[in-house]
Simulated assay, not measured.
Amino acid sequence: MSHAPYRLAVIVASTRDGRFAPTVTGWLGTHLAERDDIDVDVIDLAEHPLPARLGPRPGPEDAALLDAVTPRLERADAFVIVTPEYNHSYPASLKELIDWHATPWQAKPVAFVSYGGLSGGLRAVEHLRQVLAELHAVTIRETVSFHNPWGAFDASGRHLDEEAGVRAAGAAKVLLDQLTWWAVSLREARAARPYAA
Protein backbone atom coordinates (compact mmCIF):
# COMPACT_ATOMS: atom_id res chain seq x y z
CA MET A 1 0.00 0.00 0.00
CA SER A 2 1.36 3.41 -1.02
CA HIS A 3 1.42 6.24 1.52
CA ALA A 4 2.61 8.87 -0.97
CA PRO A 5 0.29 11.86 -1.34
CA TYR A 6 -2.15 11.47 -4.19
CA ARG A 7 -2.41 14.06 -6.95
CA LEU A 8 -5.59 16.11 -6.85
CA ALA A 9 -6.65 18.40 -9.70
CA VAL A 10 -9.00 21.15 -8.54
CA ILE A 11 -10.90 22.34 -11.60
CA VAL A 12 -12.32 25.86 -11.39
CA ALA A 13 -15.19 25.77 -13.87
CA SER A 14 -16.46 29.35 -14.11
CA THR A 15 -14.86 31.71 -16.63
CA ARG A 16 -17.34 34.61 -16.37
CA ASP A 17 -16.31 38.18 -15.57
CA GLY A 18 -16.99 38.96 -11.93
CA ARG A 19 -17.19 35.26 -11.05
CA PHE A 20 -17.44 34.06 -7.47
CA ALA A 21 -15.32 30.97 -8.17
CA PRO A 22 -12.04 32.35 -6.74
CA THR A 23 -13.72 32.91 -3.36
CA VAL A 24 -15.08 29.36 -3.20
CA THR A 25 -11.78 27.93 -4.46
CA GLY A 26 -9.91 29.94 -1.83
CA TRP A 27 -12.20 28.54 0.86
CA LEU A 28 -11.51 25.00 -0.39
CA GLY A 29 -7.79 25.77 -0.49
CA THR A 30 -7.71 26.49 3.24
CA HIS A 31 -9.06 23.00 3.90
CA LEU A 32 -6.72 21.35 1.41
CA ALA A 33 -3.75 23.11 3.03
CA GLU A 34 -4.47 21.22 6.26
CA ARG A 35 -3.90 17.87 4.53
CA ASP A 36 -0.47 16.33 3.99
CA ASP A 37 -1.88 13.40 2.01
CA ILE A 38 -2.88 15.48 -1.02
CA ASP A 39 -0.72 17.16 -3.68
CA VAL A 40 -2.93 19.90 -5.19
CA ASP A 41 -2.89 21.29 -8.74
CA VAL A 42 -5.46 24.05 -9.42
CA ILE A 43 -6.63 24.19 -13.05
CA ASP A 44 -8.55 27.44 -13.55
CA LEU A 45 -10.42 27.28 -16.84
CA ALA A 46 -10.44 31.09 -17.02
CA GLU A 47 -6.66 30.88 -17.41
CA HIS A 48 -6.75 27.97 -19.85
CA PRO A 49 -9.10 28.61 -22.76
CA LEU A 50 -9.79 25.48 -24.78
CA PRO A 51 -10.38 25.12 -28.51
CA ALA A 52 -14.00 25.86 -29.36
CA ARG A 53 -14.11 23.37 -32.22
CA LEU A 54 -13.89 19.66 -31.46
CA GLY A 55 -12.18 17.43 -33.95
CA PRO A 56 -10.19 14.22 -34.21
CA ARG A 57 -6.89 16.05 -34.65
CA PRO A 58 -6.43 19.55 -33.25
CA GLY A 59 -4.40 22.02 -35.28
CA PRO A 60 -1.11 23.41 -33.91
CA GLU A 61 -2.75 26.32 -32.08
CA ASP A 62 -5.43 24.09 -30.60
CA ALA A 63 -2.83 21.50 -29.60
CA ALA A 64 -0.90 24.17 -27.70
CA LEU A 65 -4.02 25.10 -25.74
CA LEU A 66 -4.66 21.46 -24.88
CA ASP A 67 -1.02 20.82 -23.93
CA ALA A 68 -1.41 23.30 -21.07
CA VAL A 69 -4.15 21.17 -19.49
CA THR A 70 -4.12 17.58 -20.79
CA PRO A 71 -0.97 16.32 -18.99
CA ARG A 72 -2.22 17.75 -15.71
CA LEU A 73 -5.53 15.89 -16.02
CA GLU A 74 -3.72 12.68 -16.94
CA ARG A 75 -1.38 12.94 -13.91
CA ALA A 76 -4.23 13.47 -11.47
CA ASP A 77 -5.39 10.63 -9.24
CA ALA A 78 -8.60 12.49 -8.33
CA PHE A 79 -10.55 15.64 -9.09
CA VAL A 80 -12.57 18.27 -7.27
CA ILE A 81 -14.75 20.35 -9.56
CA VAL A 82 -15.67 23.80 -8.24
CA THR A 83 -18.75 24.78 -10.22
CA PRO A 84 -21.54 27.31 -10.24
CA GLU A 85 -24.98 26.56 -11.57
CA TYR A 86 -25.87 28.33 -14.80
CA ASN A 87 -29.41 27.84 -16.15
CA HIS A 88 -29.95 24.70 -14.03
CA SER A 89 -26.68 23.15 -15.23
CA TYR A 90 -22.91 23.62 -15.30
CA PRO A 91 -20.76 26.03 -17.37
CA ALA A 92 -20.00 25.48 -21.04
CA SER A 93 -16.28 25.83 -20.30
CA LEU A 94 -16.47 22.69 -18.18
CA LYS A 95 -18.32 20.76 -20.88
CA GLU A 96 -15.57 21.72 -23.35
CA LEU A 97 -12.92 20.43 -20.94
CA ILE A 98 -14.77 17.15 -20.49
CA ASP A 99 -15.45 16.67 -24.19
CA TRP A 100 -11.82 17.30 -25.15
CA HIS A 101 -10.59 14.82 -22.53
CA ALA A 102 -12.44 11.50 -22.47
CA THR A 103 -9.82 9.20 -20.95
CA PRO A 104 -8.15 11.06 -18.02
CA TRP A 105 -11.28 10.57 -15.90
CA GLN A 106 -11.38 6.79 -16.21
CA ALA A 107 -11.30 4.87 -12.91
CA LYS A 108 -10.68 8.06 -10.94
CA PRO A 109 -12.87 9.73 -8.31
CA VAL A 110 -14.50 13.14 -8.72
CA ALA A 111 -15.90 15.32 -5.93
CA PHE A 112 -17.90 18.53 -6.22
CA VAL A 113 -17.96 21.90 -4.49
CA SER A 114 -20.85 23.90 -5.92
CA TYR A 115 -22.50 27.24 -5.43
CA GLY A 116 -25.50 29.12 -6.74
CA GLY A 117 -28.91 30.43 -5.80
CA LEU A 118 -31.42 28.47 -3.77
CA SER A 119 -30.18 25.13 -5.10
CA GLY A 120 -26.54 25.85 -4.22
CA GLY A 121 -25.41 24.50 -7.58
CA LEU A 122 -26.69 20.99 -6.89
CA ARG A 123 -28.52 20.76 -10.22
CA ALA A 124 -25.19 21.35 -11.96
CA VAL A 125 -23.68 18.57 -9.85
CA GLU A 126 -26.43 16.10 -10.75
CA HIS A 127 -25.90 16.78 -14.47
CA LEU A 128 -22.17 16.28 -14.06
CA ARG A 129 -22.68 12.91 -12.35
CA GLN A 130 -24.40 11.56 -15.48
CA VAL A 131 -21.73 12.89 -17.83
CA LEU A 132 -18.82 11.61 -15.74
CA ALA A 133 -20.41 8.18 -15.33
CA GLU A 134 -20.31 7.93 -19.13
CA LEU A 135 -16.54 8.54 -18.91
CA HIS A 136 -16.06 5.79 -16.29
CA ALA A 137 -15.35 8.18 -13.41
CA VAL A 138 -16.50 7.51 -9.85
CA THR A 139 -18.35 10.46 -8.33
CA ILE A 140 -18.27 10.94 -4.56
CA ARG A 141 -21.66 10.97 -2.90
CA GLU A 142 -20.92 13.79 -0.46
CA THR A 143 -20.76 17.34 -1.80
CA VAL A 144 -20.23 20.80 -0.43
CA SER A 145 -22.73 23.36 -1.71
CA PHE A 146 -23.15 27.03 -0.94
CA HIS A 147 -26.62 28.52 -1.31
CA ASN A 148 -26.73 32.25 -2.12
CA PRO A 149 -23.09 32.65 -1.01
CA TRP A 150 -22.53 36.20 -2.25
CA GLY A 151 -21.51 38.37 0.68
CA ALA A 152 -21.13 35.37 3.00
CA PHE A 153 -17.30 35.21 2.82
CA ASP A 154 -14.50 37.63 3.62
CA ALA A 155 -11.61 38.38 1.26
CA SER A 156 -9.58 35.44 2.59
CA GLY A 157 -12.38 32.93 1.86
CA ARG A 158 -13.49 32.61 5.51
CA HIS A 159 -17.22 32.18 6.07
CA LEU A 160 -18.62 35.21 7.93
CA ASP A 161 -21.34 33.16 9.65
CA GLU A 162 -19.42 31.13 12.23
CA GLU A 163 -22.05 28.40 12.57
CA ALA A 164 -22.42 28.00 8.81
CA GLY A 165 -18.65 27.99 8.49
CA VAL A 166 -18.34 25.14 10.98
CA ARG A 167 -20.97 23.12 9.08
CA ALA A 168 -19.21 23.76 5.77
CA ALA A 169 -15.84 22.79 7.24
CA GLY A 170 -17.34 19.53 8.51
CA ALA A 171 -18.79 18.82 5.08
CA ALA A 172 -15.40 19.52 3.49
CA LYS A 173 -13.69 17.06 5.83
CA VAL A 174 -16.18 14.30 5.00
CA LEU A 175 -15.84 15.01 1.27
CA LEU A 176 -12.04 14.99 1.36
CA ASP A 177 -11.89 11.86 3.53
CA GLN A 178 -14.14 9.99 1.08
CA LEU A 179 -12.24 11.34 -1.91
CA THR A 180 -8.95 10.24 -0.36
CA TRP A 181 -10.20 6.70 0.21
CA TRP A 182 -11.31 6.42 -3.40
CA ALA A 183 -8.21 8.15 -4.81
CA VAL A 184 -5.76 5.88 -3.02
CA SER A 185 -7.79 2.72 -3.61
CA LEU A 186 -8.24 3.37 -7.32
CA ARG A 187 -4.60 4.43 -7.74
CA GLU A 188 -3.55 1.08 -6.29
CA ALA A 189 -6.05 -0.77 -8.49
CA ARG A 190 -4.85 0.99 -11.66
CA ALA A 191 -1.26 0.15 -10.76
CA ALA A 192 -2.13 -3.52 -10.21
CA ARG A 193 -4.05 -3.95 -13.48
CA PRO A 194 -5.18 -1.76 -16.38
CA TYR A 195 -8.73 -0.48 -16.27
CA ALA A 196 -10.99 -2.09 -18.88
CA ALA A 197 -12.98 0.79 -20.39
Results as ranks from 00 to 15, higher is better:
93 S>P: 09
47 E>A: 15
130 Q>K: 06
66 L>V: 11
169 A>Y: 07
80 V>H: 10
187 R>S: 05
172 A>D: 10
162 E>N: 03
180 T>M: 03
98 I>G: 00
93 S>W: 04
137 A>S: 15
95 K>A: 05
79 F>I: 03
138 V>M: 09
20 F>R: 13
147 H>N: 01
125 V>M: 02
29 G>F: 03
182 W>L: 12
101 H>V: 03
139 T>S: 12
171 A>T: 05
123 R>W: 11
52 A>H: 14
50 L>S: 01
64 A>F: 13
180 T>C: 06
34 E>S: 02
15 T>N: 04
177 D>Q: 02
73 L>P: 13
95 K>N: 06
114 S>L: 15
157 G>Y: 10
119 S>R: 09
70 T>Q: 10
172 A>W: 00
60 P>A: 14
176 L>K: 03
19 R>D: 00
12 V>P: 02
168 A>W: 04
53 R>G: 00
196 A>Q: 11
108 K>T: 03
173 K>W: 05
52 A>D: 15
49 P>T: 14
113 V>A: 05
101 H>N: 12
156 S>K: 14
1 M>F: 05
192 A>R: 09
176 L>Y: 01
192 A>Q: 05
50 L>N: 05
154 D>M: 05
39 D>V: 00
111 A>M: 07
41 D>G: 12
12 V>F: 08
184 V>R: 09
94 L>N: 10
100 W>N: 04
74 E>I: 14
183 A>V: 15
133 A>H: 15
76 A>N: 02
104 P>G: 07
29 G>N: 09
128 L>D: 00
86 Y>N: 03
9 A>K: 01
131 V>M: 02
196 A>C: 09
136 H>P: 00
16 R>L: 12
12 V>H: 05
60 P>W: 10
124 A>E: 04
84 P>H: 02
118 L>P: 08
9 A>D: 09
149 P>G: 05
143 T>R: 11
107 A>F: 13
192 A>H: 08
64 A>G: 02
169 A>P: 08
27 W>P: 02
15 T>V: 15
115 Y>F: 13
28 L>C: 06
174 V>W: 14
193 R>L: 04
111 A>Y: 10
170 G>S: 05
147 H>T: 15
90 Y>M: 11
44 D>Y: 03
189 A>W: 10
